[in-house]
């Protein structure tokens, strides 16, 4: 079965070549669009992914396997559960952001929604401006003059 499976070659930014089953790559709109171009329709052609690391691609593939074909719309609870299964260390915010960036670049709606909702939930749990600043490790740099829209 696996032998007959069509594979697509993806090269991540850390120069690792991944052979990914085509049905999984079809869940990534960016890849799907590229495959519909003649130049990439040949399976021997390697598609470069300059914005996705090898580690992230593995998470992405796990996600695509879990969610199944069609990048179907799921409820936020289901997405949250799936995200926990895909990315065990959700406390590591940098990983979540990297995964979000990969989802954004590869145009995987469900993964983008799951990761953004995760961060939005974290913001929601804050009860003050200070705690949001603390959550992201940011310092408030807004002066009184910045509290007006820009004029032109």
């Amino acid at each position: 079965m696996a032998d007959t499976q069509k594979l697509v070659s993806l090269r991540t930014c850390d120069n690792v070549l991944h052979k990914v089953p085509e049905h999984l790559t079809l869940q990534m709109r960016t890849i799907r669009n590229l495959l519909s171009c003649k130049i990439f329709s040949d399976t021997d052609t390697v598609i470069p992914l300059p914005n996705v690391s090898s580690q992230m691609l593995e998470f992405v593939i796990k996600w695509c396997e879990a969610i199944g074909p069609g990048d179907k719309a799921l409820g936020s609870m289901q997405l949250s559960t799936l995200l926990t299964a895909t990315l065990p260390d959700l406390e590591e915010s940098e990983l979540v952001y990297d995964l979000m960036k990969a989802a954004n670049y590869l145009e995987i709606e469900s993964l983008l929604e799951a990761t953004t909702q995760h961060v939005a939930d974290e913001i929601n749990n804050c009860n003050s401006l200070e705690s949001v600043c603390e959550l992201f490790g940011l310092e408030n740099d807004i002066g009184p003059d910045d509290e007006e829209g820009e004029w032109w």
């Binding site: 915010s93 940098e94 952001y97 960036k101 954004n104 992201f136 490790g137 940011l138």
Partner: peptide, 12 residues
């Protein structure tokens, strides 16, 4: 770590 959210682009 403090700057990590700033690595997200505006779309994200």
């Amino acid at each position: 770590e403090t700057a990590s959210i700033m690595m997200l682009n505006n779309d994200c």
